[in-house]
């Protein structure tokens, strides 16, 4: 029983970070109606920035958040402004052109990272990474708890932003109905640029929080892109609440899969859930809760 609880706890803590990854993706998907297949690669970029700051400036990863989030916001905005938005006007046979562009972007980001940092594994290990908090016999890994806490704070902040501010309301309006938002005076193009930046900043936070408990290599992005869309489909496209639930569900099921089935099949668990949801519950958890 203790093993089970421990597994679930680890899964939930991981789920908090996954939720950040998923929220970024779902925001982009909601507003632009595209799957951002460069999402994990953006996270990888943020992780390398964190690594450089820690390695050369000895900046704590949690302080590095203040650098990586704005940096990725700018990077994301530029990508949307100069690479993705121009495609809206282009006539092409396949409507998925923007998605394919994100594939190209992801590839270039990965290869740039490989060029600069080479393929070997890197990690950031501040002294507190191996510390744990105990509640009875259940251990809570300290960096995971901190990461979970910051993830929750960021999510709450995002919700306040989306619900209370004008820009946040414009983002939601564009996601609901782009034409109507345009008619009401929302600059939809600027909102897409802003949203992609925001999505990138959120996934950057996830990456920076993850680095003390994870390792880093250029191809890491692809794996997290896969996780990001599993979470998004699970929660329902464009649903932020869904992404949080989806993130936690993925975290817990991966953790359970790793403990009870096999470490190697951990990633397959996510994929199987993903297929089942696609087939039996298209629309994801959003369909059940209507949020």
């Amino acid at each position: 029983m203790a093993v089970f609880i421990q597994t679930v706890v680890a899964g939930i803590l991981m789920g908090g970070i996954y939720a950040l990854v998923g929220i970024g993706m779902t925001l982009i998907m909601g507003v632009m109606k595209i799957i951002n297949l460069a999402h994990g690669q953006l996270m990888m970029v943020a992780m390398y920035i964190t690594y450089v700051l820690y390695e050369y400036l000895h900046l704590d990863p949690y302080v590095a958040l203040l650098v990586t989030m704005p940096a990725l916001f700018v990077l994301g905005s530029l990508l949307q402004r100069y690479l993705l938005n121009p495609l809206i006007k282009v006539e092409s046979i396949l409507p998925e052109n923007q998605v394919l562009m994100t594939v190209g972007i992801g590839m270039v980001l990965t290869e740039l990272a490989r060029l600069i940092f080479h393929s070997d594994y890197k990690s950031v290990r501040p002294p507190y990474t191996s510390m744990s908090l105990y509640a009875g016999s259940i251990a809570f890994n300290l960096p995971m708890v901190i990461a979970f806490g910051i993830a929750v704070l960021l999510t709450i902040g995002l919700f306040i932003f989306l619900l209370k501010t004008d820009v946040g309301k414009s983002v939601r309006a564009t996601a609901q109905n782009k034409e109507a938002a345009l008619l009401l005076g929302v600059n939809a193009e600027r909102i897409t640029v802003f949203t992609y930046g925001l999505g990138a900043a959120l996934v950057a936070a996830a990456g920076t929080l993850l680095l003390p408990i994870y390792y880093l290599f250029p191809d890491l992005g692809g794996a997290f892109t896969l996780k990001a869309f599993v979470i998004t489909i699970l929660g329902g496209l464009g649903s932020t609440v869904g992404a949080i639930v989806g993130g936690v569900v993925l975290g817990v099921s991966e953790s359970l899969g790793a403990t009870y089935i096999s470490m190697a099949l951990k990633d397959a668990v996510g994929m199987v859930i993903f297929l089942l949801v696609l087939i039996f519950l298209p629309g994801g958890l959003k369909r059940l809760t209507k949020i």
Partner: peptide, 19 residues
């Protein structure tokens, strides 16, 4: 499934086969 959903499903099936 249609459009992007189809694309995502094929990624998932592909990963399952690889694993």
């Amino acid at each position: 499934l249609r459009g992007p959903y189809f694309a995502l499903a094929t990624i998932a099936v592909g990963e399952i086969f690889r694993l």
